[in-house]
């Protein structure tokens, strides 16, 4: 609410006038120069167009409808204080900006919860969504790093899923036991799935999966996604397929959508800042070529690579929506 001093002034009559010239005028600085970002600035002119301008409105402008109607209600003697109904003003809705998602939310909290649980930690390879960065890291390492299997035979590689525990195990089974006994996790913990255990099931779901792919692909095209991005996404699994597994066993994609009844809390989000660790994982298996160039030219060339990864994370495929 407004300061009380101001309200006093408003009620102070003529004596309380605040001459506008007594208010110090802040210095106006120069127009924003076009960015000195090297050669790139000329190629990409600024897309920003806002300039302050006054708006003149015609008598018949739609903007004036409410007031005009109110005026005529008064002329027709239908205005009384009693009849004026107060109604809650319209509040803006929030929309998930991820292409292909577009879900609407009444509240900011609803949107943030949706975003954090579905789009915050998504594997760029198989589009699974995870409730935390830690679980995503573990997933990438165990599922998409081709060196993992080799390493796991020599040393303990299966990290405990509980963040901060730090113990590592020889096999996923050992880890499961540890989770159940030490951390009292349920035996069917949703995010403790090993790659192998899914293989038998995978063939059955393959057909259904293809349908999902078709749907999501269609949706993406319809919304006019830039083509190169799409190509990038497609290329990722293909490259890794060569390195790892026969094509049809690759990518057992399931919706790891978190059921709405399970809340991981908004505080669990740490954003994408743990880039270093994950990038290391990626170079191992998923073959994002851009990353290898990163050290050569820091700054600009790092960003596209980072975005490829993030693009994968943001991409929400039909599978997530359909389930």
């Amino acid at each position: 609410m407004l300061q009380s001093s101001l309200l006093q002034l408003l009620n102070g009559g003529d004596a309380a006038r605040v001459y506008i010239h007594t208010i110090p005028v802040l210095e106006k600085s120069e127009e924003i120069q076009s960015v000195s970002g090297g050669g790139g600035a000329e190629e990409n002119p600024s897309p920003f167009r806002f300039t302050p301008h006054t708006i003149r409105l015609d008598r018949d402008d739609e903007f004036f409808e409410d007031g005009d109607v109110h005026r005529h209600l008064y002329l027709q003697d239908l205005v009384t204080a009693l009849a004026d109904e107060t109604q809650a003003p319209n509040v803006s809705e929030f929309r998930c900006h991820i292409a292909g998602c577009k879900q609407l939310f009444d509240t900011l909290e609803g949107y943030e919860h949706h975003y954090n649980s579905l789009h915050r930690h998504v594997c760029s390879n198989c589009k699974r969504s995870f409730p935390s960065n830690h679980l995503l890291d573990v997933h990438i390492l165990e599922w998409h790093d081709s060196l993992f299997q080799v390493m796991a035979e020599k040393q303990c590689m299966y990290q405990c899923l509980v963040e901060g525990c730090g113990l590592k195990f020889q096999t996923s089974k050992e880890r499961k036991n540890h989770l159940i006994t030490v951390h009292s996790y349920p035996s069917d913990f949703r995010f403790d799935r090993t790659k192998k255990s899914k293989r038998t099931k995978e063939k059955k779901t393959l057909k259904q999966w293809e349908v999902c792919m078709a749907v999501s692909g269609h949706a993406v095209n319809q919304h006019g996604e830039p083509e190169n991005c799409e190509a990038m996404d497609v290329s990722l699994p293909q490259q890794s397929e060569k390195q790892e597994l026969p094509p049809e066993q690759q990518k057992p994609r399931y919706s790891y959508k978190v059921p709405s009844s399970i809340c991981f809390g908004q505080g669990s989000v740490r954003g994408f800042r743990g880039g270093r660790k994950k990038n290391a994982c990626l170079t191992g298996g998923s073959g994002v070529s851009g990353l290898r160039e990163a050290p050569r030219s820091p700054g600009k060339s790092v960003r596209p690579a980072r975005r490829v990864r993030r693009r994968g994370r943001f991409q929400l495929y039909g599978s997530l929506l359909l389930h």
């Binding site: 609410m1 407004l2 101001l6 309200l7 002034l9 408003l10 309380a16 006038r17 605040v18 001459y19 506008i20 010239h21 208010i23 708006i55 409105l57 903007f63 004036f64 409808e65 409410d66 007031g67 109110h70 004026d84 107060t86 109604q87 809650a88 003003p89 319209n90």
Partner: peptide, 30 residues
Amino acid sequence: LEDARLLGALCVFCQSYLSSHFGLTRESLW
């Protein structure tokens, strides 16, 4: 328009009429 209290008045209208005459809030902002 030398009296700066005009700004205050406009703000008061914006706030006071938000629920009863929403169009008035919009026009004050205009």
